[in-house]
C-alpha cells in the first residue's frame, strides 16, 4: 500500500466537560476506501468535522501529504483538497443542478468590464460529469429537488471530484436511501476510488461498508476500537464491535439474528 495522504494521530476533542473524542487515530491512502463505522453518538461526526476543518482538535496531530496541518476553517481544508459531502447539506434543492454543481466555484466569462456566470460552459461540464457518474439529466437547469436522494449524493460527489478533491469524506451517504439508490451510490464510490482518490466513508451500516471498503475502523464512545482489512473480519464481528458487543449479542438472539 502507498503512503497515507492524510493521517490523524491521537486526536482528542473536548466540548467543555464532554470528551467527544478521546484519542482517535486514522489514516487513508489514495485509491482506498476507508470505512469509519460507529453507532449514533460514537463521535463519527465530530471526527470528520475535525478532518474537514470545521473543528480544531483539542490535541493530536493531522498530517496531510506528510506535512503537519492546522486547518483554520473548512475553506483551508477544501483548498488543500479535502472535500466533504454531508448527508443533508450536500445540495440546495431549490437551485438547478448547474447552479449547485458550481456553487462557490462559478466559471466567469468577461464581456467588456462585466463579469458573467458562464452558463454555457457550466451547463456543458455539468452534463458531462453527470454522464460519467451514470446520471442522464433531462436538462442542467432542472432543480436538484427533482432528483432522487441517491442522485443528489452523486451530484455532490461528482462536484467534489471535478474540483480536484484528493480526499473525499462521505458522511452517511447511503443512510436515507432505498436499495437501488444505495447500490448506485456505492458504485459511484467505487468509480471515485479507481480515479486514485482517497475516500473516507462514514456509515453505520455494516453491509454498505463491506460492499466497498478496503479497511474498516470502528469508533465507540469517542475511541477507536481497532482497524481491520478487508477479508480479516466478518460482518458479525464488525456489527458486534460497533454496538459494544455484549448487549447486542443478547438482543440479537431474541431477534433471531436479523439485525
Amino acid at each position: 500500500m502507498t503512503e497515507p495522504i492524510i493521517e490523524m494521530k491521537n486526536i482528542e476533542k473536548h466540548f467543555g466537560a464532554v470528551i467527544a473524542l478521546g484519542g482517535v487515530s486514522f489514516d487513508v491512502c489514495p485509491g482506498e476506501v476507508h470505512c469509519l463505522l460507529g453507532d449514533n453518538g460514537a463521535g463519527k461526526s465530530t471526527f470528520i468535522k475535525t478532518m474537514s476543518g470545521v473543528h480544531r482538535p483539542t490535541s493530536g496531530t493531522i498530517l496531510f501529504e506528510g506535512r503537519e496541518m492546522n486547518f483554520e476553517s473548512p475553506r483551508d481544508a477544501m483548498a488543500a483538497g479535502i472535500a466533504t459531502v454531508y448527508q443533508d447539506l450536500a445540495m440546495i434543492p431549490l437551485m438547478s443542478v448547474t447552479r449547485n454543481f458550481w456553487m462557490g466555484n462559478e466559471p466567469i466569462r468577461k464581456i467588456g468590464p462585466f463579469r458573467f456566470f458562464d452558463f454555457e460552459l457550466a451547463n456543458r461540464v455539468t452534463m458531462e460529469e453527470m454522464a460519467k457518474m451514470g446520471i442522464n439529466l433531462r436538462e442542467p437547469s432542472q432543480a436538484v429537488g427533482t432528483l432522487s436522494g441517491g442522485e443528489r449524493q452523486t451530484v455532490a460527489i461528482a462536484r467534489a471530484v471535478y474540483f480536484g478533491a484528493k480526499v473525499l469524506i462521505l458522511d452517511e451517504p447511503t443512510s436515507a436511501l432505498g436499495v437501488r439508490q444505495t447500490s448506485n451510490v456505492l458504485a459511484t464510490i467505487d468509480k471515485v476510488r479507481k480515479q486514485g482518490i482517497a475516500v473516507v466513508f462514514i456509515t453505520h451500516n455494516v453491509r454498505h461498508a463491506l460492499a466497498v471498503g478496503d479497511r474498516f475502523t470502528v469508533l465507540n464512545r469517542g475511541r477507536t476500537l481497532g482497524t481491520a482489512r478487508r477479508g480479516e473480519i466478518t460482518p458479525e464481528e464488525l456489527q458486534d464491535m460497533m454496538a459494544g458487543g455484549q448487549e447486542l449479542a443478547q438482543l440479537e438472539s431474541s431477534l433471531g439474528g436479523t439485525v
Binding site: P74, R75, M78, T84, Y86, L89, A90, M91, I92, P93, L94, M95, R99, W102, M103, G104, N105, E106, I108, R115, F116, F117, F119
Partner: peptide
Amino acid sequence: TKTRFGNWIFAAGGDAQAARYVGV
C-alpha cells in the same frame, strides 16, 4: 440570473450552511 454573485444570493437563501461549506 447571470452572475456569480447572483448564484451566491440564491445559495445564501436556499441553505446558508450548505453554501458556507462550499465557500460561499
